[in-house]
Write a protein that binds this DNA or RNA. Structure first.
Length: 308
RNA sequence: GGCACGGUGGCCAAGUGGUAAGGCAUGGGUCUGCAAAACCCUUAUACGCGGGUUCGAUUCCCGCCCGUGCCU
């Protein structure tokens, strides 16, 4: 077999670009892809959905024609993509790209998704069970926690006991498999070598970019996009709870003004950026992340990584 | 100019004669099949200024300044 240039000898090499929203990840990825003959995999929980373009700052058609982008537009908003789906497809995309002799560049702001590749999560075997979840969700939070203490005490000691969603998932696993949820969370040694680039800006600059970007989205027709998604899928479609979408709900019922929508999206986006950074800081405790402000700063890291 | 109401931490806003709730914003954190989701924790030389009454005033009284509304 003819080894692809980046897949030869040792572990296969992957570039990872992470960072808060609006910091400039996509542009950096595009630049590096062009420079180092790469292809891009989007690690973004919402860019996977068709029709959610403006609100997710999806790469433009032109960019996508210039450089192949994977895991964008792979589903409609009424067929949710889960972590497991995404991880599976990302792994396929990675090998496809490497077999083509290209450099995979994983880019995104969804920390969980990135971690699932970086740390090679082996997800617990239990699949989501809609009817079980529905039944569990009828219980009070304390009761859910009580149940978990009984059937899976090990997980109960570590879980956030107020977080119903996590409680339901843990119970779902314990009930359907009879084994401990926590015990089934596995990380395996990864078969890849990563060059992790953190893309961020000083906080005041990031805030400014977020604010500007939200206004640009509105000018680009975000309201129209939201309306057409709602018409097609209704507000029940879970992806529409995303920032940039959910804020329009009250507006469309005439209970919120446009100016309020904008301020809300800006604020929620700011918070998102903070939470994203929390995740990345945690990741940074276990991995080296080269933090850069400017595109050019990333080049030496990548070059050194590819040579080593 | 007159009358009325108001001036409490970055913003909004309770409240009491014995130094002050809460919300928002901010900051930190959690996270293995909904993750742009769902959660947890959290800072603070805050009572417009000056005087008076009082053991003690943010709270009562007087004056001033500022804001808002109404009137002339």
């Amino acid at each position: 077999m003819d080894p692809a240039p980046y897949a030869s000898k040792r572990k296969a090499k992957i570039i990872v670009i992470l960072g808060p929203t609006a910091a400039g990840k996509s542009a950096l990825a595009l630049f590096l892809a062009q420079r180092f003959d790469g292809e891009i995999i989007s690690a973004d929980a919402l860019q996977v959905y068709r029709g959610m373009d403006i609100g997710t700052s999806k790469p433009t058609q032109a960019d996508r024609e210039a450089i192949p982008h994977h895991l964008i537009d792979i589903a409609t908003p009424d067929e949710p993509i889960t972590l497991a789906d995404w991880q599976r497809r990302a792994q396929v995309a990675l090998t496809t790209i490497m077999q083509a002799g290209k450099l995979p560049i994983l880019v995104g702001g969804t920390g969980l998704y990135i971690s699932s590749i970086l740390e090679n999560y082996k997800l617990p075997a239990s699949k989501p069970d809609a009817s079980l979840r529905k039944a569990l969700e009828r219980h009070a939070t304390t009761s859910l926690y009580g149940q978990l203490c009984k059937i899976d005490p090990q997980t109960a000691t570590r879980i956030d006991e107020h977080n119903r969603r996590r409680l339901v998932r843990a119970l779902e696993h314990a009930i359907t498999t009879g084994s401990s949820f926590y015990e089934n969370q596995k990380q395996r040694p990864t078969e890849f070598e990563f060059c992790i680039i953190g893309c961020n800006l000083p906080q005041d600059q990031l805030t400014e970019r977020i604010n500007e970007r939200v206004i640009a989205m509105v000018l680009a027709g975000l309201e129209r996009e939201v309306k057409s998604l709602v018409r097609r899928y209704s507000w029940r479609a879970h992806p529409l709870t995303a920032i940039g979408y959910k804020e329009w709900r009250e507006y469309l019922m005439r209970r919120r003004k446009l100016a309020e929508v904008i301020v809300l999206i800006q604020r929620n986006t700011r918070r998102l950026a903070k939470r994203q950074m929390t995740w990345f800081k945690k990741l940074n405790r276990r991995h080296d992340i080269a933090w850069v402000h400017a595109t050019a700063d990333a080049i030496p890291f990548v070059r050194g990584f590819l040579k080593s």
